[in-house]
Each structure stands twice: as C-alpha cells, then as structure tokens.
Nucleic acid binder design. Structure first.
Lengths: 194, 194
DNA sequence: CGTTCAAGTCAACAGGTGTTGATTTAGTTT
DNA sequence: AAACTAAATCAACACCTGTTGACTTGAACG
C-alpha cells in the first residue's frame, strides 16, 4: 500500500508529475523570481538537475505549469451572456467547488508572476488566448473587447486583494455567501451594461 | 547652468534623491526581485555601495520608495461618498492629470512587487493604512469595509490588466474619454450600492 | 546471467545577488 | 594652507541562482 508513495519507483512520468505538482504549489504562493528550483525539487523529492533535464529550464517548467494544465479551459462553461455574471460571481465566491478553485488558482499563479520579465510574456499570451478570446467571443457586439477587459479587471482585482493583499472580507463573517454572490453578480452585470 | 546636472556636487541629499528616483522608475516596471541594486545605482549615476549605506539595504530602499513619497495621500481628496465614484473613475482614466498619474504609479509599484515575500509585508501595511483605512472611513456604515475592499479590487484589477497584462483598451481608439470615464463611474457606483 | 539504456544523482560551474570594510576624494573649517 | 570630516569609490566578500557534464544506479530484455 505504501509502495506508490514511499518507495521510489523509477518512473519518469511520475516524477515529472511530482515536479509539476510541486512547482504549481510554489508558484501559487510566490512569484516566478522568488521560487527556486532547489526548493521545488526538494518538495518533489528529486534532484534539481532533473528539472532542467525534463523541462529544459525554469522557464519551460513555468510554461508547462500555467499552460499544459489539462484542466478544462476557463471560459468555456457559460453558454450565454445572460448567465455570465452569475457564473463569474460563483467563480469568485464559491470556494467549495473544487473545479472552480482550480480555475481560480490559475489566475493567482498568473498574477503572482506577471511582473517577472521572463514569465510575463508567457502569461500575456495565455490570458489573451484562453481568457480574453473566449470571453470576447461570448459577449459579442461592437464593444465586446472592452467589456471583456472590464470583467477580467474585476476578476484579477479580487484575486489580488484576496490572496496578495491578504484581505478576505468579501464572503466574511456576517455576510452570507448567497448574499455576497448576488452582490458580485450585480457588479459583473453592471460592468457588462454600464 | 549645467553645474547642477553634469558636475557631481557631493551632496548627500541630492544623491539620495537620485537613488530614490531611479528606484521608483525601476520598481514601476519590474518586481522587487527582478530589479537589481546595481541597475538602480547605474541609473542614478552612483556606486552600488551607497544604496546599502543610505537606506540600510534593498528592503529599506523599497520601503522608502513606497511609503516616504511625500506626495499627497491617496484617498484624502474626495469629501463625500457621493463624489467617490466620479473621483475614482477620473483617477483610473484621466492620465493627463500629473497628480493622478503619480497616485496611480504607487498602485502599480505595489502591484508589481506584491508577490515578493520581503516586499509584501511592507505593501500590506501601506495598503491598509493609506488606502483601505481612509476609504472605509469615508464610506461609513456597517458594510463600509466590504465596500472599500470591492473598490480597491476594481482599482487594482484595472491596474493589473492595463500595465501588467498590457491591455489598454479602456479608453481606446473609438471610445471617447468622457464616455469611458462615465462607464467607470457607473461601475464604482454599482460596487457601492449593489 | 549479463548487457543495455534510461532514470536519477553528484559535483561543479559561471554568473549574479546584496552587503561590508578599507580607501580615496572633495569640501569645509580653523 | 593644513587638518578634519563627510561623501563617494573600490574591491572583495559570502551566498545563492539556474544549468551542464560526467557519473552511478536500477530495471527490463535477450
């Protein structure tokens, strides 16, 4: 029963996954420059050299962490503009849903490293391709791009204030979760119709 | 006439200011970890050692850049909740006003380095003290803190999307500046009343 | 059983980081 | 003009970074 976890089973894809998981965890909490490869390797229980060997370097590892995540694409779920505000509100507030939690984690990782020169290009491409693109297409109309930018801004802003500024009073003590979700739904709707 | 600019006039406060200005400029464009002291010193035209000497190290320099800026405090200008949305909208859109530009720069600097462990504490303190505090006090009421957080989130989000994600389509080509300002005024108002 | 080849480890590198002490320079004071 | 003091420089320091090549280990295959 413990053979999978304790004993090292010389499996390339397994250690690759272990490195990827450890990297995800670190990049979630610090910026691209802050986290060291030796830290990641230590958390994954492997040697540092393997990272440069498997991913071609730190940059390649980061690219694979943020892009190759085989989780479902972020903005494919909502089918119409009408249900978009509600969907985004639940995405922001409801941390019970594990799937949404993972999608939000992607945003945090991107935010954390967005100011590191080497990581910023990777992130910008990803944002335009996976977020802004589908979002603009879904909204439609002549000012779709502007609307998408505003929604992304709110999304990013909440992420910043919550996880980086360490302020988590949105679904706080007295406020009900449902009430708070409604509040954000209203805010997203305002960004779309203002 | 060129004695002040070209000839080095062995002035401690002048070089201190030069270092501070150069540091401000660098921290505005990269993160705390990315920026090197030798780069700052080179831009200021002084030796690296002077930085650690005058500011007690990189951390001290950063703290002085973000806090000791003798510019007017960010959220003292608006007098009532009613004029808050308009004020914030102008703060975000109107980049002609140099004073507002400087206030927005502070936000960008804080955003850029917010994910670097050493800088994050400094920034969190500053945000709570200089932004969230006055904002909450101005809003008033039982949910003032929540409202302030939402406003800060939008503010930060726009900053992220604009300068880090390199998306600047808010006051873009076809949209008029006045029209866009009104849009953001409406959004901030929604965040306050939702 | 012995060979083979990938998986993993070790050690070292070249470059960059922030920081410190000793030293020199320039401006002011007596 | 000589002495003094603060300002600025130089050189070197440990330390840490990502990366690379040579090496060793392990397991599967003939």
């Amino acid at each position: 029963m413990e053979r999978e976890t304790v004993i090292k089973k010389r499996d390339a894809v397994a250690t690759r996954a272990a490195i990827l998981a450890a990297a995800h965890q670190r990049f979630l909490r610090e910026s691209y420059d802050s986290v060291g490869l030796r830290d990641i390797a230590g958390a994954a229980g492997v040697d540092v050299a393997l990272i440069s060997r498997y991913f071609g370097g730190k940059e390649g590892l980061f690219r694979e962490v943020v892009s190759h995540e085989d989780k479902p694409k972020v903005f494919r779920e909502p089918k119409s503009v009408a249900e978009l505000p509600g969907y985004l509100a639940r995405l922001v507030i409801d941390d019970a849903d594990e799937d949404r939690e993972q999608r939000m984690e992607m945003f945090i990782i991107m935010l954390r490293s967005a100011s590191s020169p080497k990581a910023s290009e990777i992130i910008r491409d990803l944002v335009h391709l996976d977020v802004l693109g589908p979002l603009t297409e879904l909204i439609g109309g002549e000012q779709a791009e502007l609307r998408a930018n505003m929604l992304l801004a709110i999304l990013m802003g909440v992420g910043v204030v919550r996880t980086i500024m360490m302020v988590d009073d949105f679904a706080g003590s007295d406020a009900d979760v449902a009430e708070c979700t409604e509040r954000f739904r209203c805010l997203f709707a305002a960004a779309l119709t203002c």
